[in-house]
Write a protein that binds this DNA or RNA. Structure first.
Ligand SMILES: [Mn+2]
Ligand SMILES: [Mn+2]
Ligand SMILES: [Zn+2]
Ligand SMILES: [Zn+2]
Lengths: 151, 151
DNA sequence: CGGTAAATGAAAACCACTTTCAATTATCAT
DNA sequence: ATGATAATTGAAAGTGGTTTTCATTTACCG
């Protein structure tokens, strides 16, 4: 439980005039805890229900949208039909995800070369590039070895 | 209307034992025509209705799925909630898309550096990478200039 | 404390997409 | 051609994540 991030987020919300409700605190606590990464709304709701039964799924959806607009969370898409969320910048700043098609295991990796591609493209296309989505999919080592055993 | 692509696709379908229905011909004709790029099922349906009123939206969905499985079309995601389709390989092979957030204008660009990122990541993570999905968003020159005028 | 506007939650709506199933039709053997 | 057969079609209903509605509750400020 990273206390810094929790307090910073509360301050940000207060400064912008949003009410600090128990529901919002619960969602914030979850995402500031260590185990919470790349959660869907449903997963976040399930995780919260244990301690705070009085938080509706709809409110979780609204918190996730609000926190994303305020810059506390990032919305991620693994292209699996679910919107997912993590702390803005994650553990180590802007990064992308490599997702296992078998077990869902996620590896994070830094920005690397996308920025230079962006600069080239801005010159070529005349666009002002605002952002990018990059997702890689494959099989993790464990799943690959398990699959080979089956043959 | 690229006749080659249309005939190749028909042959591919016939060889695999699929029936050559008027509906399938109509969808194929559309995607082999010059103006058709990155179409949603609804857009494809709208475009077809003029000439062939007897094609249901459901059948368009089924054609798009079939043609993707057979390798005639590629499914693309612009992260806007719609599945989009274009001729397999597009104009110039594997490529990615730079989409304007204002007007939807799309610029295509080649694979460039993603492959080398993939190779690095395979060594680092142990994954066997099967594919990637990259989308860039921004404002095209026209929309940027129009926005600046408004100030 | 009240007053007030924001926030909540249950239910219903939304919407792209998929499934169901009875009717139609392309294909092929006769 | 003709008929048998299984694939294909389309209207309608279903799916599932997300959003909206609206009556009720509540955090916040004076
Ligand atoms: Mn992450
Ligand atoms: Mn393209
Ligand atoms: Zn795995
Ligand atoms: Zn534009």
């Amino acid at each position: 439980m990273k206390a810094d991030c929790f307090d910073d987020a509360l301050r940000e919300l207060r400064e912008r005039g949003f009410k600090l409700t128990p529901q919002r605190r619960a969602v914030l606590e979850l995402f500031c805890s260590d185990g919470a990464r790349h959660l869907t709304a449903q997963q976040a709701h399930d995780a919260i229900r244990g301690r705070e039964p009085n938080v509706g799924l709809v409110t979780v959806y609204r918190c996730l949208e609000l926190f994303t607009n305020v810059g506390i969370l990032d919305k991620i898409k693994f292209n699996d039909g679910f919107d997912r969320y993590e702390l803005h910048g994650g553990a180590s700043g802007h990064h992308h995800h490599l997702v296992c098609t078998e077990c869902g295991h996620v590896v994070e990796f830094g920005d690397c070369l996308i920025r230079s591609i962006e600069r080239k493209l801005e010159k070529m296309s005349g666009f002002c590039i605002e952002g990018h989505w990059l997702e890689l999919i494959g099989q993790c080592r464990e799943c690959r070895e398990r699959t080979e055993e089956d043959d």
